[in-house]
């Protein structure tokens, strides 16, 4: 982790914190959720505990989409982590780096670690906002599966931004990641919600371990496919033919 990435991480976490600040201060969400939980199935707010979603089974409402603004934040700050090296000084970088695969794996792993930190931070924030729910009563494996799914969701968006950025520049890369996140939010209430990386981050309190593992597995599969696609791009990329960013 270099200083540059630590600063990016600090800014990312700060922005996510600010996005949640209103609710955190007023604990508005507690009250709303408590009222909702009385009228609905209390168990359905389990996902909200860790990810900030309401009614995971019926789709999202406007306030959920506002909460999901945080999905756009990681690609904004980490969406150029891989693409910048290829676009900006890639020519001088890769004439010294004789193993592109090792470089790519290292970069991808560091993005996964950042995604994990962001997921942990976000889930903790949401847990604080729903403090009436006893976090201590949730078995660790269930929490781990939720964290895993959220981490992979963030990782997918960051990797997508990077891979698209290699071809079309960082702005287009970010735009594609944000559009992909929005599409996945809309898919939550569609018949094919199982392929939505956002749906796969929503869990019910009484959801079976098998169902939770399937959700995490689907996100894992998408993340692995994206990783493989990125590796193919990096291996075959001809440097210096097209510069996706404007230099100097």
């Amino acid at each position: 982790m270099n200083t540059r990435n630590l600063i990016r991480l600090a800014v990312t976490l700060t922005v996510i914190f600010v996005l949640n600040l209103g609710d955190l201060v007023s604990l508005r969400r507690n009250v709303i959720d408590f009222e909702q939980s009385l009228g609905n199935d209390f168990s359905k707010i389990f996902s909200q505990l860790l990810f900030g979603f309401h009614r995971a089974d019926t789709g999202l409402n406007v306030s959920d989409i506002a909460q999901l603004a945080f999905l756009a934040v990681p690609p904004m700050f980490f969406g150029q982590n891989i693409s910048a090296d290829l676009s900006i000084s890639g020519t001088y970088y890769f004439t010294r780096q004789n193993d592109r695969t090792a470089w790519y794996v290292k970069r991808s792993l560091s993005l996964l670690v950042f995604s994990l930190i962001i997921a942990l931070f976000t889930c903790t924030l949401n847990a604080l906002m729903t403090s009436y729910f006893d976090v201590g009563s949730i078995p660790f494996p269930r929490i781990a599966l939720v964290i895993c799914s959220v981490t992979l969701c963030v990782y997918i968006l960051v990797m997508l931004s990077n891979i698209v950025g290699i071809f079309f520049g960082s702005v287009i890369g970010l735009a594609v990641a944000v559009v992909y996140a929005a599409v996945n939010i809309l898919l939550v209430s569609s018949p094919i919600k199982q392929v939505s990386i956002v749906f796969n981050c929503t869990f019910l309190a009484d959801e079976s371990y098998a169902d939770m593992a399937v959700k995490a597995g689907v996100n894992g599969f998408i993340a692995a496919a994206l990783f493989a696609a990125g590796l193919a791009v990096i291996r075959k990329r001809e440097l210096g033919l097209v510069n996706a960013e404007h230099l100097f």
């Binding site: 900006i88 000084s89 001088y92 210096g240 510069n243 230099l247």
Partner: peptide, 9 residues
Amino acid sequence: LVIENVGLY
């Protein structure tokens, strides 16, 4: 290597 129109950060 020095390649035309390729720069540093």
